[in-house]
Design a protein around this nucleic acid. Sequence first.
DNA 1: GTCTATACATCGATAGAC
DNA 2: GTCTATCGATGTATAGAC
Lengths: 190, 190
Amino acid sequence: MKTETRKDEIIKTAAKLFKEKGYSAVTMRDLASAMGMKAASLYNHIKSKQQILKEIIITLAEEFTSGLRQIQQSEKSNIKKIEEVVKLHVKIASQNPYGMASLNNDWMHLEEKLDYYLELRTNYEEELREIIAEGVKKDEIIDENIEIMLFSILTTLRSLYSWIPKKEYRNPEKLSQQLSTVLIQGINKN
Amino acid sequence: MKTETRKDEIIKTAAKLFKEKGYSAVTMRDLASAMGMKAASLYNHIKSKQQILKEIIITLAEEFTSGLRQIQQSEKSNIKKIEEVVKLHVKIASQNPYGMASLNNDWMHLEEKLDYYLELRTNYEEELREIIAEGVKKDEIIDENIEIMLFSILTTLRSLYSWIPKKEYRNPEKLSQQLSTVLIQGINKN
DNA sequence: GTCTATACATCGATAGAC
DNA sequence: GTCTATCGATGTATAGAC
């Protein structure tokens, strides 16, 4: 049972505001107002606006990286691995849809951690590409353009945050299963 | 043969910058610098920063609206209609990938035209939803959750702008066909 | 049509009282 | 830990010379 600190609260509120207007358009005064305090008071809990963005994005990016590593190390079929990737995205997007918006839309405003983020992102795409390529080689997946299959799946999963808050998608298991059906029947030969 | 005015040039350059950093993070000085002039000089061609955003977004939104209307009025099967929608997105995203970034990511910064944009967007989604629902009813499309099929297709098409600039996707006909295969085999019963 | 100069608002962040 | 007050930088936009 972790106690939520004031800092955590600020970061959570910031993520919500960043989702609505983007990092650049949200001012420290906006954030303070949403927290019911003055802008100057925020600095007793956080170092800078930039630090808030960094914590939101890097935490999530590392969660995806370690999640995919576990899937990659399992002894499943490649189609099964893709189903697990869908579950991973649904799970993280369900827990933190606001943070996911920053991860997707505000990463370019990262300062010192930008290179690190880009490295995690590139590696993530590359590992998913290998799962698909492996699936094609083993006749689990149709022999269509791999980049198109990769980006079709990935962009759908990346935009999950924007429709997961709607009531009809609140059941993660059901959503994962339905989404897998829609995404995979398109690349599954059998 | 339309001559490109200085105003058109400014809007095109702005769209490129908006794609990189988003509307809010691009300053008039950034834009002027990219145009090789001073910020004050921009105002001899455009009324305000807001006007630039409005022209980028509303032009594209209306292009999608009229494109979908034509598809809807044709006498094709619903699967064929979806293939036409894919072509429409590939065509517009190929012609103007930078503007598409603003349409997707900066629409919330529209001021007076925000309601109009939201109306076009809602109507677009509703018409596409009806094509899918009609396809399910006529046994062309699997009887899976319509919202999930709609958003899976739509989010993939909406993110086209981000990977279309890569060399391997420069052939619109081929890209449309491959994308249709990947997207539709997932919802096509036959 | 582009420039310099500048008005005026608002930004992120700090100092210091309580 | 929150406040008031404020700093210096930077934002959009205008005025007026050339």
